[in-house]
């Protein structure tokens, strides 16, 4: 009996550790949206970020949370790259200037 209970507990625990949940998706999506909003304040959002965010939402709405999280993480990475670009260009643009 004890062994059966332990097995059931193990299976349930493993399930929550590996299958993406709606909560995980929502957290990943919120992080991506926040990064993209930051890029917006810097006036430098990227089109692929918006595409990845839309794909994340579509997958999330369909209940495919693994895909939704992957898309949201992609969107966050892209948004962070655009932020990095904006910040570094604050100085770098002068290298291109015709003088």
């Amino acid at each position: 009996m004890k062994i059966k209970l332990a097995l059931i507990a193990a299976v349930l625990t493993a399930g929550s550790a590996f299958a993406a949940s709606e909560a995980d998706y929502k957290a990943a999506y919120a992080a991506a949206e926040a990064a993209n909003a930051e890029a917006g304040k810097l006036r430098n959002q990227w089109i692929p970020t918006a595409t990845a965010l839309a794909a994340a939402k579509k997958a999330g709405d369909a209940g495919d949370f693994d895909k939704a999280i992957a898309e949201a993480k992609e969107a966050e990475a892209l948004a962070k790259a655009s932020i990095y670009q904006s910040i570094s260009e604050k100085k770098l643009w002068k290298d291109l200037e015709i003088r």
Binding site: W46, S82, Q85, E89, W93, L96
Partner: peptide, 21 residues
């Protein structure tokens, strides 16, 4: 001027990338 020379977008292009370089 700053806008003209600033790289932006995923392709990392400024206006100058195409129209100066």
């Amino acid at each position: 001027k700053e806008y003209f020379y600033t790289r932006r977008g995923q392709l990392n292009f400024s206006c100058a990338t195409c129209h100066v370089q």
